[in-house]
Design a protein around this nucleic acid. Sequence first.
DNA 1: CCTTGACCTTCCAGTGGGGGGAGGCCATAT
DNA 2: ATATGGCCTCCCCCCACTGGAAGGTCAAGG
Lengths: 137, 137
Amino acid sequence: MRAKGGMTIGQAAVSSGVPPKTIRFYEEMGLVKPAERLANRYRAYDESNLQTLRFIRRARDLGFSLQEIDKLLALYRNRRRASEDVKRLALAHVAQLDHKIAELTRIRDTLADLARRCHGDQRPDCPILDDLERPRS
Amino acid sequence: MRAKGGMTIGQAAVSSGVPPKTIRFYEEMGLVKPAERLANRYRAYDESNLQTLRFIRRARDLGFSLQEIDKLLALYRNRRRASEDVKRLALAHVAQLDHKIAELTRIRDTLADLARRCHGDQRPDCPILDDLERPRS
DNA sequence: CCTTGACCTTCCAGTGGGGGGAGGCCATAT
DNA sequence: ATATGGCCTCCCCCCACTGGAAGGTCAAGG
């Protein structure tokens, strides 16, 4: 079954860190181009495909969306890219992250404060429920 | 159409901050009990329903999942609840938030560092793409 | 009386990023 | 010959909604 540099989807999954289901999903979404097929219809992957999958995996770990990754891949493959374009994408994502972190932190502090003021005993009085119940103007 | 304390789903939506679609969704999910119906099959809401919807809205704003809100609502309605139980739910959620914030912050710092080291000009060299390309052990 | 427009109703589909599992083919080891 | 296990496609599920289509209901205006 195995050609010289070829591997099945399972091998590619182990080697790239992207599960088989997810690889098929990326193919269906058009994020990666359809894999070559062996005579038995099994998908075949080589080092080049693997590199792409690892790239995607790392980008996902850094929180990029699949849309953003699509753009990153285009830049990655374009030898005449301007690093300016990559940097702009990255900084936009940093800004998104900052926004999300700020939002979660605000929520976290509010909730921690409410919890701090809650006795946490057998009595029913609870500032947390009081807050949830209180109508907002 | 309007009974004394009754309002339509649209009025309830404005007054609670929960959109009509979402109210129906909560009903279908069993998070709120099915609304009373008028003769014309329109859902009817009173102050009590409104209080529940505002409670849910606030809890969602604080990042609780619908499952968690279901538990919070049960505690809210139980006059013999122990504030301990509410506090435990809240602190578990704070812990989740802390975990998420730490993760996002780690990603943010990694990405900001890569972007800082990228020239961001017309040249193709880019530490960000270099990082994404690099195989992980 | 009729139309318009703003409501309301139900049902279906899609979002993002996959996971689980059915039912069937293929490859290898016993 | 058969038992495993990997691969194939296909469809459904998750979360928490959101949008849209098709149709019922109601008040106001001409």
